[in-house]
Design a protein around this nucleic acid. Structure first.
Lengths: 221, 221
DNA sequence: TAGATTGTTAATCGATTAACAATC
DNA sequence: TAGATTGTTAATCGATTAACAATC
């Protein structure tokens, strides 16, 4: 069909390459070999070369990779610097934190509106981003091109809201709610940020580390 | 040494099992087979059984798994419901959002203090959680048992701050800063939440989906 | 040219899935 | 007991690493 799909394992690593190349650029480094980059990033040079070659040929034998060129190319692959309009559904603490975060904008991801049901928020704005009432959503979606919706609503409302977003033509959901949204992959692209899952993983690893330390101590006795 | 390590791929799935079992519990379901759970969670029954058997034997042949028992056991594995004290370094938007988030507390993860350098925040508190000045950190760490530090400081200060935390006896860092902290694994456990990486991954998948849709259309013509 | 380093094929490793004997 | 379903071993699949010919 459309050539071989690139695995999410690879995709997940691309932003990290992008970040490190950005740092190299700031440091004024002009070119870098997969080997030097691998030492810097704590991965194998082989993996770097394999990952990149999923997307095309970016290096030169005997030379390595031009930092600026590779940075730009990965940027294109990830859609950075294209403009993406985001709306945030739910103007709670997390929603507001997202709206206040300036970093995303620098990457081309611009939050153009917050939506909530709380009438007390009506007419307010955050960093110039207006807060709308949820019943204005349909009209807003008709007037504006929206690429991504960040979902930060209460758990109980997440599934219904996600479907409402989809029926308004939104096909990418950045889901901060602690539920698994049930969609077929053709309908929507969902990216989950499950903070409590992340916290539990940290917790497990912490406990493990403690027990390892205890075991190590016992062995020394 | 300490038996075979369980892979992070497995650990990452455990919170999701925990969540689904919690839902089943709420629904009043008493027992469940790996097969039924697999359909519900969109994974293979085989994977569920393999994952669980990393940690012990929780089921009964011919019966399946007792929902409540399995829920409790996974909770123990993940350290949920043990009390974990958290401090948040950086009382910016994200730090405040974390402090305002009540969910973590229900899982036993309690934020007991926020730290910042902004003197305007001195003496303030969020949901009863006091904001301290960063120069009070050392004293605070001596007086309180701290399990986890959430790091939400500006990029330039992250590395130094992380080392300062470690030298104050903190061995688990929940890193929200868009940098890779350089530590040996014996020193600290780090769990990264890189929101812009997550956003870029979403962006890539979104672009991909669009192009697939275009290709599909062309084929229909 | 000689040295460096890629792109890519082949080998290895690990994770997922399938199969099935054990047993409730 | 017969049926269901586990725990676990074996088979498969995919991802990572190693190796090396191509080439700048």
């Amino acid at each position: 069909m459309e050539g071989k799909e690139i695995s999410q394992a690879v995709i997940r690593r691309m932003p990290r390459y992008y970040r490190h190349l950005g740092e190299l650029l700031e440091e004024g480094v002009e070119r870098i070999s997969s080997n030097d980059l691998s030492r810097r990033m704590n991965v194998t040079a082989s993996q770097i070369r394999q990952d990149l070659n999923n997307f095309g040929v970016f290096g030169h034998q005997g030379y390595g990779y031009n930092v600026n060129y590779l940075y730009e190319e990965i940027g294109k692959i990830l859609g950075v610097n294209e403009r993406h309009n985001i709306i945030v559904i739910g103007a709670g603490n997390l929603g507001l934190a997202l709206a206040n975060y300036v970093k995303f904008e620098k990457l081309g991801f611009v939050i153009i509106g917050l939506f909530d049901i709380n009438p007390a928020l009506k007419g307010m704005s955050v960093r110039g981003i207006p807060v709308y009432m949820l019943d204005e959503l349909e009209a807003f979606c008709k007037k504006n091109r929206i690429d991504i919706a960040a979902l930060t609503v209460p758990k109980q409302k997440a599934e219904a809201m996600a479907h409402r977003l989809v029926s308004n033509g939104i096909h990418a959901i950045w889901n901060f709610v602690h539920v698994d949204l049930e969609f077929s992959e053709e309908e929507v692209v969902v990216e989950n940020v499950h903070l409590s899952d992340s916290l539990m993983q940290l917790s497990y690893n912490m406990i493990q580390k403690r027990q390892d330390a205890i075991r190590a101590e016992k062995k020394t006795e």
